[in-house]
Structures are given as structure tokens and as C-alpha cells.
Write a protein that binds this DNA or RNA. Structure first.
Lengths: 217, 217, 217, 217
DNA sequence: GATGAATGAGAATTCATTCAT
DNA sequence: TATGAATGAATTCTCATTCAT
């Protein structure tokens, strides 16, 4: 092994270490942001959560806001991962299964997602700058699946774009408090039951005919 | 008119002026909070928006947080007003019309609503303290309507509580950015079209049979 | 009674009312100052204590500090009253009796006195401006009595001025906490006993021969 | 020297620097408090006096009040040091000498002591919380000395506790303005003369027989 | 690269004083 | 003359960012 290779390796190793550290900081920061919100979180708290000195943060990010931006713009988020591979949805059963998984996904527990909802989805500027394109991409990808389903006949006639947006909106709504934390104390069974109802409504609508499940009875 | 009456009138007049001023401050503050979020908003901005001196805020509210709480806990919010008189919904057509109105309601434009979503619905403590009971009341009232509809047969079998929550969640989701502001520029017609699709999905589901509108074609 | 007299009477009556009001405000303010100190007391509190509107204070005094100055420079204070008529002290028994009364005087309970101690006696400027001359007058008057006593032989040879100051200092010290409030809980008897000891020391000294009282035993 | 030792030394050095800085701030603050009083002093002035930025104060103390408390509760104060070693007073001459030193001590010039008098000795809460126990300890220690003196016969019969309190009160009184600053301009000789008179009165009382000094004449 | 003390701009809040009613 | 809302300067305290070690 040559000196040059050694040097190369050392460089790569350092790169990896830096990258790992950045990741740790983002995890810690997302956790703090999710709890207190971006503005109320302090760099001191973030540093403590990342087990690092306050000043050291600035070796990895240029500002507190830069950390937030990194969290928001980084891909893939849990929702991303969920929607990432919708391309393979080629029949009704797979689609139903996908909707069920999406609704039941415990995404809201993840600091990452809560931070994005709290900050980007309620802030015009952040949303436009870092999330809009992202969401657009997801929407159009999902819209294509719906469009395919409609053409293939395993979905009823639906406006692909509007439908994609409505589904994403519903998934988001399930991550906010009124859906998550109410009633304050809830058994896991009740929660499952509630989710099942949501899936049912999403799939068959308020006014629709009996859902297949009910038809069986 | 006696002196006493004069005094009474003066007292009442002052009371009204104070109340009006409080209202102005709340409007101004809600507008600022909606744009920048509670934590990032400064009392200086709020005072400027309300066109009074910074110190004068404290003649009407004891703290910045007190202003936020007043906004959040004040009733009725636009959503309240919407759901307030659902008791009269006694047949399918009225129910459908109600859902349509609810989705189309321009509530999201109102600073008031956006402040509540931004702060209370993403903050555990605020939500528990000021909104939880509120939402619970709305939910149970709406659930009763659904329950009535199911019994009367103009609604298919639905879990009343879960359904109520799902509908409210959807209405909320429609007030957040991904549903409102995307794509950034949108013609009113496109927006209406999008809303119509959302209504359609809410009423008839993703997998449902053709909606009545489509059946006509 | 002529119109002029009527007018005169009205004027005098108003004068008296104003004076009475000023007095009330000073009483109230002294009470507040004694508790919280001048700087920490607010005009709002003073107004509340005087049962008057905040703005009305300024019809009687030109500033908060003006109120303090009025309290401090007003005569006679309790100490003044005590020392006012020392001119009649013409023999040993009267002098002893006077010392006893001075030490036992419950002056410290009075807001007036506590305010003077708290503010003027620990503040260079206030003291120089408003109390120095006052104290000097008292001191020289008391020094004359001592001088007379020494000449007449019913007091041992003492430096009149230094003695006057030392006695006044001791009376002051008895109004401060370490002498008043310690130990925290104290029976009235214990307090009397403590005062008696102080009088004894003041009259006969630490190293002196037995006090007359003790000699009797 | 190992790396570990190096690290240890660095740690210790920083600790010392922090401690030194705290001390500087306390000195500066005591000086400001002594002049203007706690409430009227501003953090800006304290910072300026300590020659650091205003915000830096909060790296060493958690609040302005915390600085005051640190000054007040810190031991030993000048008075402490004075009374600390009274245990060795075993005869009349030593006792007389001690009293003389205590009265003549230039303690009042020290900001530290003036701050304690100004704030703690005129403020119920501060006194109870931070000084009461302190004074009690001093008092009981000094009372034991007096008790010993009485038993041994080189002190006349005195109530030990009350006497201890009276002496401490007198020492305190000598630190306040009427004793210190009057008359405004005073030659050192006059001051000494005044102190001597105070000592004389303290030792032999107002009514006592001629002091030893006078007997010599 | 890591540290954490130093900084100072800016935040919320208080309060003596003024002034329209 | 009495009132108390309005004012804004001043205060305490926070915190993102910098920088010497």
C-alpha cells in the first residue's frame, strides 16, 4: 500500500467521521426541535443532546437555521420512504395494503417528522424553499400511480393530482395532536380501531356503499 | 339623566373601549403569529401591528403568552362556527352540503385559525390545556350527528367517533401548506377543482363506486 | 359673613383638605417604602395603599422621589419627638428615665422610622441632603444637655458631642434587624429583659462597677 | 508529565480562573451596591465596574439577586474575622483591647460590609435567609466569652446574650452614616477622639464612675 | 478539531410620568 | 381635581455566534 493510498484512506476516514458527526447532530437537533419547536430550542440544548460542545456545532453547520434546513431538506424522510416505492402498486389489493400501511405508520413518533410538520408545514418561507419541491415530487409520483390505476380500471375515476394531495394531507393530519393524542388516554386496541375507521373512510368514503369488510358480515 | 346614570354610562363606555382594544390586539397578534409563529414574533411587532406602544400591550394582557392563550382559547373559532349547528343535519343531502361547505370554507386564510394550527396543534402542552376539551366537544357533537345518520339509514355503517375525528383531521389538513399553497401559483378554478376532488374522496372514498356526479355522465 | 370671608373659608378648607391628603399619601408611602424599600416600591402600590389613582399622586407631589424626600425631611419623626424635650433633664434620675424610655420606644415598628433608616441612613446623598442637618441639630441639642449634666455633676466627665452621637447610634442600631428580630421567636418578657440589659450597658458600661440595681441585692 | 496530568492541570487552571473572575465580579458588585443600593444598581453598572460584558455576568451568576446573595452569604465578612478569635480573651486587658480594636476597625469603608448593612440588615427576608444564622453564631460565640469573663470575675455581672447583641449592634451602628459621616468634614484626630469616647462609654457607661484614664489625672 | 467563556444585540417586561377625558 | 390608559426609556436576562486556548 502506497503512502498516497494511506493518505487517501485517511482522508476518506475523516470524511466518514465528519459525516457521522453531522448525522448525530441532526438526530439530536430534530429531537429537540420536535419537543420545543425551532425558535424555542437553544444551541446549548442541541449541543447537550448531541453530547458535544456548543462551539463545536459550528464546525459542522454554519448556523442554527442551517441545522433546521438540513433536517427539513434531507431525504428521505419517513414519508418519503413510504411513498418512495409506490411504483410497484399495480393492482387493487396492493394499493389497499399500501394505504393501510401508510395510515398505521408510527411516523408521528419520530422527531424528524414532527419537526418537519411543526416548522416547514406551518411556515410559508421554509415550506416554499425546502418542502414544496419535495412534496411536488412525491405528489406527482403518487399521482402517476393513481392515474395508472384509473386507466387499468382497479381505481374508480379520480383526479390523480387532487387525490394524491388529499391522501398526503390525510396522512399529515394523522400526525397532529387532535388525531394522535385524543382522547388523552387510549388503549392500543382503541387506537387500532380508530385507524381502521380512518382507512375505511379513506377507501370507501362517508357516503359510499358498505365496505367489503362489512359486506362479508 | 342623573349623575349616577352618567357615571354608569361612563363606566360602560370605558369597558367597551377596553374590550375593543383587546380585540384589536388579538387580531394584530394573530396575524403576526400566523406569519412568523409565536416564538419568532416579537412584542414590538405585535405592538406595531396593533398600532400602540409596546408597553401598552401589558395594560391588556399580562404577557406575550397570555395573548397567545387568549387567541387559542377564545371561542368560537371558524371551525367552531362551522360545526356549531350540525344538529339540524337530518338527511343525506344536507349532510353532503355541509361537508362541501366545510371543505370549501376559506378558514385557512384567517390568521386566527392558522395561529391555532401552528401553535396549539403542534404543541403538546398548549393543546392539552386549551384545545383538547374544545376539540372533544366538537367531536362528540359531530359524532352524534353521524350516529343519527347511521341509525336513520342515510349514512352507511360508520364508527361515529372515529369518523368525526377523521373528518375534522381532514379539514385541518386542508388548512396547512401542502394543501393550500401548492402549487405556488394556482388559478381559482384549479383550486375549486382540487377542493371538489377532495370532497369527492371524502364522500365516496378512493375505492368507492362512481360518485353520483360521475354516474350522470 | 361677607362673600370675601366665604371665599376665604373655602380657600382655607381646600388647603386643609390638600394637606390632609398629602399626609395620607405620605403615611401610605412610608408604609410601602418600609416594607419593600424605596426603589422596589412602585407608584402603583403607593397609590393603592393611599386609596387614590396613580395619576393623582402627581397632584400632590412632583415625583416619586419627592415623596421620599417629604418623608425623610418632615419633622418631627419619632426620634425627634423623643429628643425634642431633653432640655428639661436637670438631674440624674430624669436622665436615666429618659434613656430607658428611648431604648424601649417601639419606634422600629413605625414605617416612618424604618423608611428613614432604610433609605437615608444608608444612602450618602439622601443623608447629606436631608438628614445630616437634622441629626446635627438633635446631636447638638442633646450634647448641650450632657454638657449641662457634666457641669452640674450628675454626669461623670464625658465628651458631650461624642456621647450624644454614640447614644443616637445605639438607638438606631436597636431599630435594625439583628437587634429586633433575633432570635426569630421571642417572648415579650425576653425582649424586655434584653432591652433592660442594653439600658444597663449603656448606663454603666461593660466594665463598670455594679449597677445600682445590682448593688441593692 | 503525562497527558492526563496535563489535562488535570488545564482543568484546575480553568477552575481557578473562574473562581478569580467570580471574585472580581463580587468585588465590583459590592462596590456598586454599597453606593447605590441593590435595587438602584443596574447590571450594566456592575458589568462596567467588573470590566466585562453585561451578558458575561450570567456565565458566573444566574441573576442579579444571586450576586447579592453571594455577597451576603459569603464568609468571613470583616465582622466575622473580628469576632472569629474571641476565644482567647481571658482577662480584662485583652477584652478591653478587643473592644477598642472592634470600634476602631475601618470596616465601614469596605463595600462588602456596607452592602450587607444596606441590604440584609434592613430587609426582613434577606436577613432571615442569609444573615440570621450567621449573626446567631457570632452572638453565641461572643456570649460565651462574656459568660466566661463574668464567671472569672474580670467582667461585672452581665447577661451574656443581651450584652453580646448590644455590642454587635453598637459596632453596626458605627458603620452607618450618622456615626461615620458627621460632621461632613472631620480631621482624623477628631475622628479618633470620637471613637475613643464611644469606647469609653461602651466600657464604662454613661453613669459609671470615672474611667481609669480619667482617674489617672 | 474541540472547547466553553466572552460578547452584545435584542427579547420581554416594568414603571414613573403624562395627558386626554 | 380625579382618573387610569398610553407611553417609551430603561431593566434584567437570553442566546446565537465568535474566538482564544
Amino acid at each position: 500500500m502506497t503512502d498516497d493510498q494511506n493518505h487517501q484512506d485517511g482522508f476518506a476516514r475523516r470524511e466518514r467521521r465528519v459525516e457521522r458527526r453531522r448525522e448525530e447532530i441532526l438526530q439530536a437537533a430534530a429531537s429537540v426541535f420536535a419537543t420545543k419547536g425551532y425558535a424555542a430550542a437553544t444551541t446549548r440544548e442541541i449541543a447537550a443532546a448531541a453530547d458535544i460542545a456548543e462551539g463545536s456545532l459550528y464546525n459542522y453547520f454554519s448556523s442554527k437555521r442551517d441545522i433546521l434546513v438540513a433536517i427539513i431538506s434531507r431525504s428521505p424522510s419517513p414519508v418519503d420512504r413510504l411513498l418512495a416505492d409506490t411504483a410497484h402498486l399495480t393492482d387493487r389489493d396492493q394499493f389497499v395494503q399500501f394505504i393501510e400501511q401508510a395510515v398505521m405508520a408510527p411516523a408521528p413518533e419520530q422527531p424528524w417528522m414532527r419537526t418537519i410538520i411543526k416548522e416547514a408545514w406551518t411556515d410559508d418561507e421554509l415550506f416554499r424553499q425546502y418542502q414544496a419541491g419535495h412534496i411536488e415530487k412525491l405528489t406527482s409520483r403518487f399521482a402517476r400511480v393513481i392515474s395508472g390505476g384509473v386507466k387499468a380500471g382497479w381505481l374508480r375515476p379520480l383526479d390523480p393530482d387532487a387525490t394524491a394531495r388529499a391522501v398526503i394531507a390525510l396522512l399529515m393530519a394523522f400526525m397532529m395532536h387532535p388525531m394522535r393524542a385524543c382522547p388523552a388516554v387510549e388503549t392500543p386496541e382503541a387506537r387500532t380501531q380508530r385507524m381502521q375507521s380512518a382507512i375505511d373512510i379513506l377507501l370507501y368514503g362517508l357516503m359510499g356503499h358498505q365496505s367489503p369488510e362489512q359486506e362479508k358480515e
